[in-house]
Amino acid sequence: MRKVLAHQLVWPTTALAVLLLVNVIATPTFFDIRMQDGHLYGSLIDILRNGAPVLLVALGMTLVIATRGIDLSVGAVAAISGAVACVYIAGSPEQGAASTAIVACSIALAVCVGLGLWNGFLVSVLGIQPIIATLVLMTAGRGLAMLVTDGQITTVNNDAFKRIGAGFVLTVPLSIVIALGVFCLAALVTRRTALGMLIESVGINPEASRLAGVRSRTIIWTVYVFGAFCAGVAGLMIASNTSAADANSAGLWIELDAILAVVIGGTSLAGGRFSLSGMLVGALFITTLATTIPTIGIPAETNYLFKAVVVIVVCLIQSPKARAALWVRRTAPLAGRATA
């Protein structure tokens, strides 16, 4: 029992389960899933579909945080990605063609990789603190996205592009298939090869790792590029979901949701260790929380408060110290009896 309770996944999973339970109590049909126009339809499907961008961004963030870094620019990168893709499609002579969508997405992702290289350069080569280095792109990036869209909401009409965020493959939302695909690939590469351990060693001590023969600089650079790539894919999903690039609000605060997902999942912001499965639960938790608010009818005026309270509670039960304080008080008489 103690072993189970000590596992890092227990508390986030419990929190997620409790949240789902609250939804079922408020809306008994919450778990209902039916077929609609040839695809699955239901609240849980919405959570998976809307959770895909957060999951992707959090995936990149997990690896960045594991190297003792942080990437605040992911929301802006997501906005740029959506903006570049939509502006390309809108300006193309064959707006509806699938090939247009493919070229648009490729250009957008290439731009994002470029932005990731920039972040990685600032952090690994120039040695600027990650929070400052990525803050540059966080603030400037949204302006860049607005420059691309000319400050307009660019609406596009392209079925292939629409499928990324709002489409389905074999009755399952395509977005979550993409997100889980990237997730599995990342898990495989980091956990089945030495890369995960190398990332962790860089997070613990970059200089010592370098002296031990680990190419710290390359590894740090790589995680920022990967983070920006993930954010770019997330940005395509967000834009595709409404078939429009909204430079101002696309991916707004997604970096904070992602950091929260990483932290809830048990990855330490101090770097040196990471949990991808924990992050997965954390990302689902954040999305479920967003769905819970309109489902159980929290008034608009208090929804931020509700969110804050839930997050604080989850963080508290995650903390061994806070838990110990609660635990000791509650179980003290029981423990006394056992020893007697």
């Binding site: 919450f30 919405d46 409404t242 429009a244 609000s249 769905t291 309109p294 159980i296 008034p299």
Partner: peptide, 23 residues
């Protein structure tokens, strides 16, 4: 029957409406 903020954005309107349609 229900009222929630969608922050004046398409994305917000879509997500809130998705939840309303089920609840």
């Amino acid at each position: 029957g229900a009222s929630q903020t969608g922050d004046f954005t398409r994305d917000g309107g879509k997500k809130v409406m998705e939840a309303f349609l089920k609840s």
